[in-house]
Design a protein around this nucleic acid. Structure first.
Lengths: 226, 226
DNA sequence: TTAAATTGTAATATTTCTGTAACAAAAGAA
DNA sequence: TTCTTTTGTTACAGAAATATTACAATTTAA
């Protein structure tokens, strides 16, 4: 799944077209033709991104936007505003009201797609694909494969989950307790030093000679991917 | 490739919608907004099927149709007529003039797709492929046959469904639960370990010596086709 | 109806993975 | 330096997951 996108736009033809195209790209899409209803459905649908028309029959796009930014659950929802030609002077106003990007109608689908990807990449990089990557490291969550410099690497289940964990937030340092909580199934009790051993195993697997060490030890704090 | 479809229809919105959907299904699609031009482009495009609007700005659908039937190269081109509601009395006239099927607007895409498949199956069964393939593996869903490297392989019903399942999403790793849910009829209760046995049987059947193993075991995750 | 094929399960064998302990090495602190 | 703390490394036994086999029950075909 690439992510969920909600559309609030009153021109049904645009909605259909965009929806179809996005679904073709692997997004899950839902839509609403006006602002008030849209706001309600939004909360149920929990999208990763909102495409919002500037001019709506009831509320204006800006009003919808403000509403969203006021809602603690939706505060961080990325929004791309759809504006008609000639409304461009309002750009700045739109961005001020908390829009992440805007696009002028008529737009090509490619342009829209590019912007969606850009915005999503900023807000939630994992949605764009099921691959987690960091430098020359790639982890495919669907096929359950790991590559370093395009060479496949064999990992045991725990090492796989461990690497997956680090790849979600590279560079960040995690304590052994944090690692334990997330990577190990709940309610198991393992020694904190066990992690050292798994780190060692992971290191051994992903390290390639002449390539730099990818896992950093932070004494008295934990480990991180660098 | 599933085949080429040409559309002659003057409502651009319908054309767009249908075209997108058909392309999503794997057809190659081209279109024209009026009859005369459509006839010309038809000959270049060489479609396997024509979607023809009843009411066109210049020629009527029937005229286009008659034209086609008179042309020795296009004589056998299957045609599905698109009619608006209320024109239904004309059905018979349409079919008499050499139309293979007709569909009334507004129609759902599913309905259209079903009719297209039906017509194509009659006129050119090879186009509607019900084969799933992956590398040198081929599964014919209609004839219920499986081939590896052009040699037919005998499978039991369950192994067949299992392989069919893997072929729909090759490379993707499925858990035993996912496999159970999809491959086994609902509401049956079989041990999750039973799958191992069927995997073994499937492996035994589709493996050929000197050829690589096709089913990959991903410890603690499941299986996939590779 | 009989024979053959198919299916699910249990029992057993095999493989792979995991956690721990013990010791070595490194980094800080005194 | 020397001591203390933290991390690295290794080996290994037990655990866990998968493979394989055999068999009885059931379905299908002859």
């Amino acid at each position: 799944m690439k992510g969920k996108i909600f559309i609030i736009e009153d021109e049904a033809s645009i909605v259909q077209l965009v929806q179809l195209n996005l679904e073709k790209e692997g997004f899950v899409v839902s839509s609403s033709l006006n602002g008030n209803e849209g706001l309600k459905e939004l909360k149920k649908f929990e999208p990763n991104l909102l495409l919002l028309d500037w001019m709506l029959p009831d509320l204006s796009g800006i009003d919808v936007c403000k509403n969203i930014r006021r809602d603690s659950n939706l505060k961080n929802l990325p929004i791309i505003m759809l504006t008609a030609k000639g409304e461009e002077e309002d750009k700045i106003k739109g961005l001020e009201s908390g829009v992440d990007d805007y696009i002028t109608k008529p737009f090509s689908f490619n342009e829209l797609h590019a912007r969606i990807k850009a915005v999503l990449r900023r807000s939630d990089p994992n949605i764009i694909s099921n691959d987690l990557t960091f430098e020359d490291l790639k982890l495919d969550r669907i096929e359950k494969r790991v590559f370093r410099a395009d060479k496949e690497i064999q990992l045991g289940p725990t090492e796989f989950r461990l690497l997956e964990f680090f790849l979600i937030n590279p560079k960040r340092v995690y304590s052994r307790d944090q690692i334990l909580e997330t990577v190990w199934p709940n309610n198991v009790n393992v020694e904190s030093r066990t992690i050292d051993v798994h780190i060692r195993r992971l290191r051994q697997s992903i390290n390639i000679k002449d390539k730099k060490e990818l896992i950093r030890t932070v004494r008295s704090s934990g480990y991180s991917l660098v």
